[in-house]
Every structure is written in C-alpha cells, then in structure tokens.
Computed example of a mutant assay.
Amino acid sequence: MPVRVQTADFDLSEEVRLLRAGRPEVGAVVTFVGTVRDMNEGASVAELELEHYPGMTEKALEDIVARACARFHLADALVVHRVGPMRPQEQIVLVVTLSAHRGEAFAACEFIMDYLKSEAPFWKKEQTPEGARWVDARSSDETALKRWREGAPG
C-alpha cells in the first residue's frame, strides 16, 4: 500500500503508470488530485503551508488505505501528500485507486479522501493579505464521514 508524504511535487501520469504496471486484472483506475485554491473563506490565499508529524502521518494514511482496500476490494491504492509551502494551483494530494470495476474504485477514492480530510494529522496555515491564519477543520468533512460510518454502499 504505497503512501508517501513529501515536499516535492508529483507527476500524475508517472504515478499511475507505475501503480498499474503488471496489473492485467485492473479494469478501473480512479484518480483525485487536490490543488491549492487562491481563495478560502472570502480571503485571497497567497500560500498554503502544510505541517505534519512524520511517522504518525504516514501511519494514519496507511491505515486509511488499508481500510479502503479491505472494504472496496481494491487491487491497490496510492496516496501522495505534499507538505511545506505551496502556492495557488500547485498540487497538494494524489489518490489513485485500482480495481476490477469502476464502482469500487470511485467509492474507494472518495472514502480515502473523506477520511484523509478528517483523520490524517495535517495542519494548514494560509498566508492572506491580513496575515497568516490556521485553517480549522470543516464541519462538512465530518458530515462526509458519517455516510461511511453509517454503512453507506460500497
């Protein structure tokens, strides 16, 4: 279960190519790329900085991916999450799910992102015209988890 936390950017095509290699049973590849927005909560964002606890963060991501693989019968999955300073339009996170069928791959990708947003130990700080501010968790992220906890399909 590949999981990486890194400062460097990633190449979507290359990551998918490497994960799919030698996997003839895979009929579906779903990808999600999260990027830095230039606006958040009504303020212009010049930079987003992500911090994490090395070791703890990777373990949390591995646990999330393991749950997704077991629940959705995935052939494999990949999470690459960047940390450090990033500017608007830069890539933050990549999730790739592989399965025999698209339904499982789509659901697993969404499951991973929903849990990542709520359970992975990352902290976000935005640079705005008014100065630096920490970004609080959104109630919508916790709401998204409820459907998985309450036995949503997939």
Rank of each mutant, 00 (worst) to 15 (best):
W148Q: 13
A68T: 06
P88M: 11
G103L: 02
F32V: 02
V3F: 06
V95N: 05
V79Y: 00
A77Q: 01
G22Y: 09
D9M: 07
K59C: 04
A28C: 03
R20S: 10
Q6E: 11
W123R: 11
E130A: 15
W134A: 07
V29A: 04
R133D: 08
T97F: 02
R138C: 08
N40Y: 08
E130L: 15
Q91N: 14
V26Y: 00
S140I: 15
G42V: 11
V36K: 05
L19S: 12
G55Y: 10
T97R: 05
V95G: 05
T57A: 06
R133F: 11
M56T: 12
E25V: 05
M113A: 01
P129F: 10
A43S: 14
R71S: 02
T143G: 05
V95S: 05
G27R: 02
E41Q: 15
P85M: 12
V65D: 00
L74W: 00
P54Y: 09
E110M: 06
F122T: 03
E130M: 11
R20A: 09
L61Y: 01
V45M: 07
N40K: 07
S13W: 03
H81Y: 02
F122Q: 05
P2L: 13
C109V: 04
E14H: 13
R71V: 01
I112K: 04
G151Q: 08
R17D: 14
K117V: 05
D76H: 06
F10M: 01
Y53N: 07
L12S: 04
H81A: 04
V33I: 15
D141I: 09
E130G: 15
A70K: 11
A70H: 11
M113C: 04
E119N: 10
R4A: 12
H73E: 14
A46G: 13
W134C: 07
R102E: 14
A144V: 06
R4S: 10
T97P: 00
V93L: 14
G55E: 12
T143W: 14
M1H: 10
S99P: 00
L19I: 09
W123C: 03
V29Y: 00
M1R: 11
G131W: 04
V3T: 10
Y115G: 01
T57E: 04
R67A: 10
R71G: 00
L61S: 01
V30Y: 00
M113L: 12
A77P: 00
M56F: 11
V95P: 02
F10D: 00
A21K: 15
T128F: 03
T31F: 09
N40I: 01
T128S: 03
E150I: 06
E58V: 07
K59L: 12
D11V: 12
E104Y: 03
A108W: 09
D9Q: 09
E142T: 13
A75D: 13
G131D: 06
V3S: 07
E110A: 11
S140A: 15
D114T: 09
V83E: 07
A60I: 03
A21I: 05
T143M: 13
F122V: 05
L19W: 06
A100W: 03
E62N: 12
V79F: 00
K124W: 01
E25F: 02
V16P: 01
H73D: 15
N40Q: 11
C69T: 15
G27S: 07
T7F: 07
Q6G: 08
W148G: 09
E90D: 15
H81W: 02
T7R: 15
K125A: 07
E142L: 15
A120Y: 00
